[in-house]
């Protein structure tokens, strides 16, 4: 490619690099600031002296959060819902995408099934009938309320269905000649060959479960049953620190701010751990999209 080397071009490139760098820094600056606050002592945090580096460094806030039972309990609930919810969600997605990827000739009734799905994407009963349904099924205060109702993601099904369709039909024909059933084909050909798509969907489903909090808020009546993000909301947004059951004497050296910040970061650690993996997968996805145009 012919690159202009004019002064104007160089000036633009310098401004572009600088501008992008400033923008990216602004995007993460709030997290750095809060991280610094979480490691600062009471008077510095309360007085608003902390910018991007801890003042009077202390880990007291983290020690306190980790020494109370509330955080652990909710953490375990979140791990459980993420594991079970992702497993169930992916199983349903893998199963549902297969018949949809077949022709209407082979899967009679495909049209009807497609319309059932499309209508569910177009229309929903809204929050209140949904909540009344959960309640009438006796799911309130049960961890299943966080796992089962959202198990079917129609968008994910469509994505995987399109992936199945990209798989060469010769493989399918050869398997049919060898007498393979649909289950054989799904689990021995389609699933193994769709690993990149399934891995991406699994990661996004898991992140979605980890991050969701509203379902926990409306389907659990007791803080002790809250998943982590709902628990975090009680502390950080509702500002109800009593949920943590802290001995007041331990708060002497600590600010509410640092304590909230510590809760936020501890709840975010799992996302930060999977973030590099997540990124690798969706960057690969972008490349795929770019090649296909």
């Amino acid at each position: 490619m012919v690159e202009g080397k004019s002064f104007g071009r160089r000036l633009f490139m310098a401004c572009n690099y600088l501008g992008l760098a400033i923008f990216a820094t602004l995007c993460i600056a709030p997290f750095i600031n809060l991280l610094a606050i979480s490691f600062s002592d009471r008077s510095s945090a309360m007085g608003g002296f902390v910018t991007f580096w801890p003042v009077n460094f202390t880990t007291a806030s983290y020690n306190l959060v980790l020494s109370t039972g509330g955080f652990y309990r909710s953490f375990v609930i979140s791990v459980l819902r993420t594991a079970l919810g992702t497993a169930l969600g992916m199983l349903v997605t893998i199963l549902t995408a297969y018949p949809l990827s077949r022709t209407g000739q082979e899967f009679r009734g495909r049209g009807v099934f497609t319309w059932i799905l499309i209508f569910a994407m177009l229309f929903n009963g809204g929050l209140i009938p949904w909540w009344l349904t959960i309640r009438s099924l006796g799911m309130l205060n049960s961890i299943w309320a966080l796992i089962v109702p959202g198990a079917l993601s129609i968008w994910n099904v469509i994505l995987l269905m399109n992936f199945y369709r990209e798989i060469p039909s010769e493989l399918d024909d050869a398997a049919s000649i060898d007498g393979a059933s649909h289950f054989d084909k799904l689990f021995r050909i389609y699933v193994p060959l769709s690993t990149p798509a399934i891995a991406t969907l699994t990661l996004f489903t898991a992140v979605g479960h980890w991050n969701s909090w509203f379902d926990g808020m409306v389907s659990m009546t007791d803080v002790s049953r809250y998943p982590l993000q709902t628990f975090l909301r009680t502390i950080v947004v509702v500002s109800d620190l009593s949920a943590m059951n802290i001995d007041p004497s331990k708060m002497a050296l600590l600010s509410d701010r640092a304590l909230k910040a510590a809760n936020i970061f501890l709840a975010t650690v799992p996302i930060l751990i999977v973030y590099p993996i997540l990124q690798r997968y969706f960057v690969a996805g972008i490349k795929l999209g770019a090649v296909k145009g």
Binding site: A120, N124, T133
Partner: peptide, 24 residues
């Protein structure tokens, strides 16, 4: 098997999409 594979999705749709729709 094609119909068996749709079954979980249909049950979930019936319980958590279509029953709440009726609830309106």
């Amino acid at each position: 098997p094609l119909y068996a594979m749709c079954l979980p999705a249909l049950v979930l749709l019936a319980l958590f999409s279509y029953y709440p729709m009726y609830g309106v």
